[in-house]
Amino acid sequence: MNNESKRLRIIVNCAIFAAITAILAQIEIPLPLVPISGQTLAVGLTATILGSRQGAIAMIGYAAIGAIGLPVFAGFSGGVQVLVGPTGGYIVGFVAAAYFTGFILEKTKFSIPWALVANTVGMIITLLFGTVQLKYVMDLTWTQAMAGGVYPFLIVGLIKAFLSSWIGIIVRERLIHAHLLKNNHKDAA
């Protein structure tokens, strides 16, 4: 495969996972300050399947298409106002979460146990970014920000971390087997 084909495959993979994130973002359970949505599940799947670099690129793409106004964020919202609003820190955190989740897997092994560790770290990163922005935008105390931006998401976050690990590793293995994803890492998927 030549370099042009490789680049095209990377662009297509990143675009597909940005679209999956946009779709899963519409599955949401409303809460007082921050809704529970399928976005973080998509971030975990993206990083588990694509790895650090492509996972982060996919999340940058997702944030960018939302920033220009396409309704891809939770609740069919979009625009820069979402990124600078109370919940925007979570979306910005998706980029770092995808990168570090994929990075951990690349440095260890693409396996369900390691993916669970990596996705748990990714969940913590997302919650950290989101809570910091929530606190400052809403002028909350740290206790209020944690109560509204972290505690309601811990159990559901661990469930999503498990699901994205389990589903992500299986999908990754199948994509590699079908020659739709290249395995560039020391451990076979």
Rank of each mutant, 00 (worst) to 15 (best):
I10E: 14
I11S: 10
V12C: 06
V12N: 05
I16F: 15
I16Q: 12
F17K: 12
A19S: 12
A19R: 11
T21W: 01
A22F: 01
A22Y: 00
I23A: 04
L24N: 04
Q26K: 13
E28F: 15
I29Y: 12
P30D: 03
P30W: 01
P35V: 14
P35G: 10
T40V: 15
T40W: 01
L41C: 09
L41W: 12
L41Y: 12
A42T: 10
A42M: 03
G44T: 08
L45R: 10
T46E: 03
T46F: 04
T46H: 09
A47D: 01
G55A: 10
A56I: 15
I57Y: 08
A58I: 14
A58G: 10
A58P: 06
M59W: 06
M59S: 08
M59A: 09
I60A: 08
I60R: 05
Y62S: 02
G66S: 06
I68E: 07
G69P: 15
G69C: 07
L70Y: 07
L70E: 04
V72K: 05
V72Y: 00
A74S: 10
A74T: 14
G75C: 08
G75M: 09
F76T: 12
Q81W: 11
Q81C: 07
Q81L: 13
V82F: 01
V82A: 06
V84C: 05
V84E: 00
G85M: 05
P86A: 12
Y90S: 04
V92D: 03
V95T: 13
V95N: 05
A98N: 04
Y99Q: 02
Y99A: 05
F100K: 05
F100L: 08
T101K: 07
G102Q: 04
G102E: 00
F103L: 13
I104P: 02
I104S: 05
I104C: 03
L105N: 02
E106G: 13
K107W: 01
T108W: 02
T108A: 03
K109D: 00
S111T: 14
S111Y: 04
S111I: 14
I112W: 05
I112A: 08
P113T: 05
W114V: 14
A115G: 07
L116H: 01
L116D: 01
V117M: 12
V117I: 15
A118E: 00
N119I: 15
V121I: 06
G122I: 14
I124L: 12
I124V: 15
I124R: 00
I124W: 08
I125T: 00
I125E: 11
T126H: 03
T126Y: 02
L128E: 00
L128A: 11
L128V: 14
L128P: 05
L128D: 02
F129V: 13
T131H: 11
Q133T: 09
Q133I: 12
M138Y: 07
L140F: 12
L140R: 06
T141D: 01
W142N: 01
T143I: 13
T143C: 08
Q144I: 15
A145D: 08
A145H: 04
A145C: 11
M146N: 11
M146G: 14
A147Q: 14
G149T: 10
G149V: 10
